[in-house]
């Protein structure tokens, strides 16, 4: 998804990991930010790692001028688990008891989950949340082949299509 035309052709959006600073700069530099914000107001969006930062309402440790997509009523802290030296693999537990091994890489932490539904925790702290059409996770589900978060997101997309 690189242009507004690409965005117009999809029903849901996944904003994956990467550098939140870079993604935010490029959304602005390439004139995508207004359309992505509009999309995130009504359509399903899943943000993981950097994607979570971008859809958060409040971010600690972001650049002063950093533009966010926002919409998810959480307070997150960038790189709260530490830099690359502190990146780790660990297990997360979903609300239905499913446990999966996932990767946290320079990961953000959800400090306050506000009115969100907590989908998963790691050491009793929320690491995946949902609010209306938005889902966010601090971890990378894709690197370890974990699929539970994807299944939850597909259900959300299906609800929105019916």
């Amino acid at each position: 998804m690189k242009t507004n035309l690409d965005l117009a052709a999809v029903d849901a959006l996944i904003i994956p990991g990467g550098e939140s600073t870079t993604i935010s700069k490029l959304l602005v530099n390439f004139d995508l930010m207004p359309q992505v914000r509009k999309f995130a107001k009504t359509k399903p969006v899943l943000g993981t790692c950097a994607g979570l930062i971008l859809i958060s309402d409040e971010v600690i440790g972001a650049l002063p001028d950093q533009e966010l997509i926002s919409g998810l009523p959480v307070k997150t802290e960038r790189n709260a688990y530490g830099g690359q030296l502190n990146s780790f693999e660990g297990s997360v537990v979903f609300a239905d008891g499913t446990s999966e091994n996932v990767a946290f890489i320079r990961a953000p932490k959800i400090l306050e989950a506000g009115n969100c539904e907590v989908l998963a925790t790691h050491n009793q702290e929320p690491v995946a949340v949902k609010f209306e059409n938005l889902m966010g996770a601090s971890f990378h589900p894709e690197l370890t082949g974990a699929t539970h978060l994807h299944k939850l997101f597909i259900s959300l997309v299906e609800e929105h299509q019916s």
């Binding site: 030296l85 502190n86 990146s87 780790f88 693999e89 660990g90 990767a103 946290f104 890489i105 370890t144």
Partner: peptide
């Protein structure tokens, strides 16, 4: 948790 795995 396990830090600094090849995957990480």
């Amino acid at each position: 948790t396990t830090e600094s795995t090849p995957l990480v």
